[in-house]
Structures are given as C-alpha cells and as structure tokens.
Design a protein around this nucleic acid. Structure first.
Lengths: 314, 314
DNA sequence: GGTAATCCTGCTCATATGAGCATCCGGCGA
DNA sequence: TCGCCGGATGCTCATATGAGCAGGATTACC
C-alpha cells in the first residue's frame, strides 16, 4: 500500500466513522468507486488505524477470551476491559463484578459452591445481587477464620454469598496455617472440621482467587506468615498462593513442610473439581495467574485485559 | 434506559465490534430480535459507550472542523487529531503537515502566496513536496531577515516553499522591528522594500502563524524584543503576535508605538486578504488562536484538536 | 518487445442494516 | 371494568455493504 492509498484510507475512515457518510458518498467526494472505498476502509481496519473501544466498566474483551480458551485450554475465560481504568482498585472492582456476573449467569445454577477468602472474594460477595441463585450452599475450602485484621471478613464473604443466593454457609473453623504439623493434623481430625472439608470436596463449583508472593499478601497481613517467611518462599521460587498454598511458576508446591501445615483442600483436590473459577487481576498477579492456568488449577479464569495479554504472550 | 438494557447494549457492542457478528447472530445469542439489537447498538453509540478513534498522524477531526466553520465563521478549518500524540513537537509536526496538505490541495492553485516566518512556517516549508504547485510566487509579508539565531531560516522558509512550488521567492529585506520610528519609515520608503510590500499586498493567499506572548517567542530569541518588553506587553493585555504585531484577546494592537516600528503588512491589510491561512497549534497558543479567529485575522485555520476545542468552549 | 504473473478495478448478487409504521402491552383515570 | 395513552416491539421495505469474479492494467522477467 503506498502513501497515497494510506492517506485516502484515512480520509475515507474520517468521513465514514466521524461524519457518518455512506461509502458511496465518500466515493463521490474522493472521486473513487464505492468498492474502492470499501477496500480502503477494510485496509485501514486491518492495519490498525481504526481503534474501536467500548468504554464501560462492564465491558469485556471477547477476542482475548477466545484466545485464552483456545490457546490455554480453559473451559471459559472472562476478560474485563482496562479501557479508561483509573486506579488498580477500579480494576479489581471490575474484575469482581465480572466474576459476580459469571456466577449469576451460570447454568445449571451451582448447588454447592466452595469458596476461599481474601480481598477479591470479599468484593465478589459484595457485588452479587440478592437472588443471584436459588438455594446455593456455600462452603469454605481453606482455613483462616480468626486471625484477620478485620475479623470476620472471611466469614462475611461466605455468608454474604450464601445469603444473597438464598442458601446457607458452612464455615471452616480453623486457622489457615498452623505452627506445628501435629496441631494441623489434630484439627483436621476433629469431627466438625473433617465434615466441612468433606463437604468442600463434594462442591460442584469452586471459586477462589490467588495471592501474589510478596509482603502485601493477606497471609502476612493476617499474621500467618512473617515478611521473612515470604522472602524465603520467593527465594525458593514461589510466585504466589492459591487457597493458602504457595506454588512456583509450574504450579508445584514450593515448601511441602509449610503446605502440610496448611488447612483446607489440597491443590490436587482443587484440580479435580468439575468447575474451578479463578478470579485474578492486577499487574502484581501476572506470574501467579500464569502458574494457575499453566498447572490447570482452574477451568475458568476471570481476569483483566493486561493479565490476559500477559498469559498469551508467554 | 435501565441497567439491564445498558448491560445488554454493552454485550451487543462487544459481539458486534469486537467479534464481527451480525446483528442477527447477536440477537440469537442474546435472545433478542435483530431490531432490538440494532436499537441497543444505536443507544450504546449515542450514550458514548463506543469510541471510534482514527490513529494516524494525518488523521483529522471533521466534526470539529465543521463546528469551527459553523460556529466561528471560518471559511475552512483543518483540525488534526491529537490521538496517540507523544510530544508537543509531534503535534507541531502534524499541524504543519496538515497545512502543507491543505496548500497542496488548494484549487485554484495560488499564484502569489504571502508568508510570514517562524518555527511553524519553516516546518511547513519542509513538509511540502516538490511540485506541490506549478509556478507559485512567494513573498514575505513581514520583516525579519537577518537577526535570527539560525540565520537564514526566514529566507529558507520562503525560498523552500517557492522552489518546491516551481516558482520564485521575494524576500523582504528588513528587520522585523526597528528601534526608531524614523528608521522604519525610511526603510519602508526604500524603493525595493516598498515594492516588496506592494507585491505582498497583492497576494491572493496569505500563510502565517501566530506566536504566544511569552519569553520563548521568536522575537525574544531573535533579539528584536527583550524579555522585559514581552512582560510589559503581557501586562498591557497581549496574548500573542501575528506577523510581529502583538494583539490582545480582541485582536487589537496592544502597543501602537511598537506596532508603528514593525515592518510588513498591517493586520487590517491581512484581514482584507481573499484567503488568510493561520497555522496555530499547541496549548501555549490557545489564547492567541482565539484572538486571531475572533478578530477575523484568518479565513482558514489549521490547528490541533485541543486548541480547536478550546476555541469552541469559549 | 513479448509474455506471463500479479494486482487492481468495477461489476453482479446476496446479505446486513436502518427508517418508518402498525401493533401490542402495561399503567392510569373515569 | 373499560378505554386511552405512551412507550416498546417486531414487521415491511428501501438502502448500504461485503463477497466473489471476470476483465484490464501493470510489472517482472525473458
């Protein structure tokens, strides 16, 4: 394409998209046939001179979703648009909104939903509308009830999701990570805890997020891990955690001893789930998102545009 | 429009613009009739959810051009897009390019073109292509030959425009501003100078830019004015200069004494021109652009998007 | 200079889209 | 309860657009 055609295609695009002229009118104005105008417009599109953006908090990026499904083997992918996003909080909110939308639209409606907890999950629970499901039972899939800085957000998350879905919540009454292996085994042997975990295993849908392996982690904030612990995990190759279990970029457990002291479903149990929905957004979580998808921890991914593009680049 | 329709219009827009589905297919997917889909898309457009941008250095903004013509009474307006612009140099280059394009496309081809000088004019002379006109005579309309920091740019501008247009240039051999009124009158009385000015008056098209009234002005750089002079002009209400003559926001001469010592066409002579093309871009020149348009110093304006919107806001 | 391959152009025809209009539905006053 | 009104809905029909194709121009190569 030479320069003259490039310029013509721009003039045509202006008249077509900004001035709402028909291709025929443009042809008359520029002394071209309408077919030529059509071809110029097609070329302008194809060469990327024309950008069409959908500016809305609920906008998604369907072509990227398709590529994620096809190239990364996901059962489903939801990618929210980053267009016009101001803060990372807004990105987080958009992603949580999209996750809530996805849950609401699920058919068949989930009967038993296993959930983790954290900032993302809490936001999802807030975005869900009353009546999003009819009688869904929510069960926590990992520990972490008491030690939160804002006590009760883990419980509030599960209960909120359940109430708005017209069902009840089953909490896992245990810390996330215990200091001694023996204590962890004792807790898991407890009849109530064992029952909850058993129920969790039977969930037909899991909903969880992932944390980045850095000092801002909720596990540090909650006091389950020290900053030095996290540094050590990173040194061993950790890129983040899923349901409290730290993984490397291939999705393998980084520190088996630590993992053995972590209460809740194991990653393999998560992998065997019929439907596992991971909700992961923000630049800090690119690496862990990649690990989650690569190691098939989820079958459905809800994320933002930048993270999705990162997954497709690799 | 309620929230459900808003969401549907976004989903429809995604399928239509990103996935290239037909409205009918979208209707099947979303369980709507194709007419409903059409209306949803129209609403999404109308409510501004859909933004179509043309990303190209030569892209223009036709709707803004139309408004400038209609609302500000210009014979013609060229507005270059600011989309994806990096530096103010790039904006300047785009505007100069657009001015060169406009000159090249002019019909009838100008026979005698009166030009001022400055950074913008020099850039236009560079952007013009060989053979942009057939035998155009270029004449300088204001003084300023010798005192430039880069000597000869004023001359190079006029000569370059003329040569590429297959014609010759007539330079105005005079400083821009003289220190004494008597000297200025003596120079204008000179046979050669008087002849050039007479020729300039007869030009069928004028091409000029405008300078901001600040210390970065070419008149300060060239030494015709001191920084203190400019400060004083600003104090008197100057917003910028056209062909070396400083005006206030209504287009009136700010300092008649200074103006009397300035060599070249007067503003009233400029206003009487059949076609006067002003090329003005950059945030620093919003005020002077407004003054130029308001006081009808030009009939054609070439500018950038931000400046154009500033003119329309007022 | 001749020939072939390639690209470009402008047609026919099928399809997609938008304008205008009759109809339907839900709310409201009599 | 009835009938009226305003807005939404889905039709008909005219128009706009895109795909495919045959002829013509242009270029590269011999």
């Amino acid at each position: 394409m030479d320069e003259i055609d490039e310029l013509l295609s721009i003039r045509a695009a202006e008249l077509y998209y900004e001035d709402n002229k028909t291709q025929d009118e443009i042809g008359q104005a520029l002394r071209l046939t309408r077919w030529k105008v059509g071809r110029l417009l097609a070329q302008a599109k194809q060469r990327g001179f024309i950008r069409i953006e959908i500016l809305h908090p609920r906008a998604r990026r369907l072509p990227i979703e398709r590529r994620l499904r096809d190239e990364r083997g996901l059962a489903d992918a939801i990618v929210v648009s980053s267009a016009g996003v101001g803060s990372s909080e807004e990105l987080q909110a958009r992603t949580a909104q999209a996750a809530a939308d996805y849950l609401t639209a699920m058919r068949p409606v989930p009967r038993t939903l296993g959930v983790s907890w954290g900032r993302t999950l809490f936001e999802i629970s807030q975005q869900l509308r009353n009546g999003w499901a009819i009688g869904v039972n929510v069960v926590q899939i990992n520990g972490g009830v008491s030690l939160n800085r804002r006590p009760g957000t883990a419980a509030a998350t599960a209960v909120g999701i359940a109430q708005k879905g017209g069902g009840s919540a089953t909490l896992l009454p245990s810390p996330a990570i215990l200091e001694r292996l023996a204590t962890k085994e004792a807790i898991e042997a407890d009849r109530v805890v064992a029952g909850v975990i058993e129920l969790a295993r039977s969930a037909d849908v899991f909903l969880f997020s992932a944390g980045a392996a850095d000092r801002t982690s909720v596990h540090v904030e909650s006091g389950y891990l020290s900053e030095a612990d996290v540094d050590e995990l990173v040194r061993k190759g950790a890129v983040g955690d899923v349901v409290g279990r730290y993984i490397d970029s291939d999705g393998n457990i980084v520190d088996p001893a630590l993992d053995a002291r972590t209460v809740g479903l194991t990653l393999d149990e998560l992998r065997r789930a019929p439907i596992g929905i991971a909700v992961i957004s923000g630049p800090a979580k690119h690496a862990v998102a990649d690990a989650v998808v690569r190691s098939r921890l989820c079958s459905v991914l809800v994320t933002d545009e930048a993270t999705a593009l990162h997954l497709l680049d690799g």
